[in-house]
Design a protein around this nucleic acid. Sequence first.
DNA 1: CGTGGAATTGAGGCCACTCAAGCAGTGTGG
DNA 2: CCACACTGCTTGAGTGGCCTCAATTCCACG
Lengths: 239, 239
Amino acid sequence: MPHSLVLQLSKRDLITANEQQVLLNAFGRQLRFKAGAEIVADGSRPMTSLILSEGIVGRAKILANGTRQISALHVPGDFLDLHGFLLKTMAHGVVALTDCLISVVDHAVLKNITETAPHLSRMLWLNTLIDGSIHREWIVRMGRMSATAQVAHLVCEMFVRLEIVNRTVGRTFTFPLSQIVLADILGLSTVHANRSIQELRRSGAITWQNSRIEISDWTMLVDIAEFDSTYLCLDFEPR
Amino acid sequence: MPHSLVLQLSKRDLITANEQQVLLNAFGRQLRFKAGAEIVADGSRPMTSLILSEGIVGRAKILANGTRQISALHVPGDFLDLHGFLLKTMAHGVVALTDCLISVVDHAVLKNITETAPHLSRMLWLNTLIDGSIHREWIVRMGRMSATAQVAHLVCEMFVRLEIVNRTVGRTFTFPLSQIVLADILGLSTVHANRSIQELRRSGAITWQNSRIEISDWTMLVDIAEFDSTYLCLDFEPR
DNA sequence: CGTGGAATTGAGGCCACTCAAGCAGTGTGG
DNA sequence: CCACACTGCTTGAGTGGCCTCAATTCCACG
């Protein structure tokens, strides 16, 4: 089984054997983090970028009043801070939401790829563009959708993203995030996140218990969420 | 005066005379759009990317119930859809919020740059990474900040971004967007956007009348907005 | 069997929403 | 030159979604 990163890239364009080799050679040491651990500190200037191999990770920002907002969610195969390669200074923290396994790539190696492997560089660029596309969708979700629709949208997105890296089984997947974390993703209070999840359950589109989500009615779920997967860039084509 | 795009890139790293030439040679024909015009359609597959020379542009998505959410705002020197180069299919529309002047770059030319000019390619990549960084900040803003703080944050961001491209005069700048558009940016109703602006005016941090914003008390404004410019990537350093 | 974290429920309040009307500035046609 | 539309800003009133605080239940685990 290829690494989830290769699965993700190969979903969007052909990654040659040679390019795969370059990528895997770029991987340095592996790190493990416990759920709740801070992986990259807000304001830091990392010299490496991180690739998630197992677990779920969030990009988070803590506000003055102590509240937290999670601005991105990551599944296996995602880069956690590829943007740090060029942005240099982190404007948010990166936090493990479950136990995680992570691989490290030196920025020097990334720079070398940009100097010698144009197509692979474009695919890494694409990786960050998909990040951005997801961000925009979240902005739309947060700005104009009801709490219940937001939950539905998140479930749709997670299902599709996890399916690409073979972390779904049929119409089900495990999603071991507490409702406290969910609330920080959706920009809601814990109480209201809970009630919104309940309402979505009552709709009959999903069942969700003990970190296990089953999509009982995909059509209904998509309808509630107004979900259109275009923003996830799922087409295989030359880039 | 160099083009605003060069101003923006040169703020973050040295752009050589040769690189500037490559960029300006990439510019194709110019287009004009009236305020309110659709520049790129949601779902389309453009073969070019657009650079804004004059005016203000938004990336927007219309929901089923007819409401609109603007997920990004663009000032002169910004690429409007550089992400379209690799994402291929637009997952949102691009709309002129004022009268605009725009330059066109063929994707083929961009591809050639990625094949032959690694550093310039990284700077274009950086451009899209800053986009993404702004998206994340907006998510935080929308998820966890009060309406008034949101307005304050937007004013801070717009001031800094416009200052880089010389569109500010002292502590003032023109911001010719209606409150209807403002509401679509902030994810609020028009009425509440209006009341939030009024509250910010009452605080004494700004005056805002007839599309002209003056920042009377930058420190107070930053304080209300919890504004930290790190996410705008304003440091000049090798990338 | 006690403990602690997470999920759930209840009650009350506030922030933001909708609907609707009034006002001000600007452009247009008679 | 004025009546008039038209658009955008402002205000009022009433409603509802989401919030806070607090208590209770549930469940995994030592």
